[in-house]
Computed example of a mutant assay.
Amino acid sequence: MKKPNDILSIGYIAERTGLSVSAIRFYEEKGLITPHRNAGGHRRYMRSDIRRLSFVMVAQQMGFSIDQIRSYMKRLPEGRTPTAKDWKAISSEFRDVLEQRIQSLSRLRDRLDGCIGCGCLSLDKCQLYNSDDKVGLTGAGPRLILGESEG
């Protein structure tokens, strides 16, 4: 059963999250939160929406798009506060995506000074990383940085 203080105004949600009212409405329009309307038509939020919006803010900071975030959040239960188990299921997949990004950025960092692996042969070192443009035969773009082998 909900307690009266579990139903929160948009102003209170803005104060607690640090988001502007317009940002909260934007996230509502994007389907990331779903407020209820009281008899006067005013938006009312559940206390769990503070966590949902916090998740959105952190995910955006890490480079996830609104569509990606919405996809993750669809896995959360509606009508009740997500449990630690609910959040753990999301965080496991979220962690996998972040790990892939970390590996990709590490490859970029480690190879950027020498060659970006594009097959352009514009640097003398490209002969070392991609002699005879072997990588170019497998497709366009920075193949080595994207994690593909040299063939």
Rank of each mutant, 00 (worst) to 15 (best):
Ala59Gln: 04
Ala59Asn: 11
Ala59Trp: 07
Gln60Ile: 06
Gln60Trp: 05
Gln61Trp: 00
Gln61His: 08
Gln61Ala: 08
Met62Ala: 09
Gly63Met: 12
Gly63Glu: 14
Phe64Ser: 07
Phe64Gln: 09
Phe64Tyr: 12
Phe64Asp: 13
Phe64Ala: 06
Phe64Leu: 11
Ser65Asp: 12
Ser65Leu: 12
Ser65Met: 07
Ser65Asn: 10
Ser65Tyr: 10
Ser65Ile: 08
Ile66Val: 15
Ile66Thr: 13
Ile66Leu: 09
Ile66Asn: 07
Ile66Ser: 08
Asp67Tyr: 01
Asp67Ile: 01
Gln68Ser: 13
Gln68His: 10
Ile69Ser: 02
Ile69Trp: 00
Arg70Thr: 02
Arg70Glu: 13
Arg70Ser: 02
Arg70Cys: 01
Arg70Pro: 03
Ser71Leu: 00
Tyr72Leu: 09
Tyr72Ile: 03
Tyr72Lys: 05
Tyr72Asn: 06
Met73Phe: 11
Met73Lys: 00
Lys74Ala: 08
Lys74Trp: 04
Lys74Gln: 14
Arg75Leu: 15
Leu76Lys: 04
Pro77Trp: 05
Pro77Ala: 07
Pro77Val: 00
Pro77Lys: 06
Pro77Gly: 00
Glu78Cys: 06
Glu78Val: 03
Glu78Gly: 09
Gly79Val: 05
Arg80Glu: 15
Thr81Arg: 11
Pro82Cys: 05
Pro82Arg: 05
Pro82Ile: 01
Pro82Trp: 10
Pro82Ala: 02
Thr83Asn: 13
Thr83Gln: 13
Thr83His: 08
Ala84Leu: 05
Ala84Cys: 03
Ala84Ile: 04
Lys85Trp: 06
Trp87Asn: 06
Trp87Ile: 00
Lys88Leu: 11
Ala89Gly: 02
Ala89Tyr: 04
Ile90Trp: 08
Ile90His: 08
Ile90Phe: 05
Ser91Cys: 14
Ser92Cys: 08
Ser92Asn: 10
Glu93Cys: 14
Glu93Ala: 08
Glu93Met: 13
Glu93Asn: 14
Phe94Gly: 00
Phe94Lys: 07
Phe94Arg: 06
Phe94Tyr: 14
Arg95Ile: 00
Arg95Lys: 05
Arg95Gln: 12
Arg95Thr: 05
Arg95Cys: 01
Asp96Ile: 02
Asp96Leu: 02
Asp96Trp: 06
Asp96Ala: 01
Asp96His: 01
Val97Trp: 01
Val97Ser: 02
Val97Leu: 01
Leu98Val: 12
Leu98Thr: 04
Leu98Tyr: 09
Glu99Ala: 10
Glu99Tyr: 14
Gln100Val: 09
Gln100Cys: 14
Gln100Met: 15
Gln100His: 15
Arg101Tyr: 13
Arg101Phe: 15
Arg101His: 15
Arg101Gly: 15
Ile102His: 10
Ile102Phe: 11
Gln103Arg: 07
Gln103Ser: 04
Gln103Ile: 00
Gln103Asn: 12
Gln103Ala: 06
Ser104His: 15
Leu105Arg: 09
Leu105Met: 13
Leu105Gln: 13
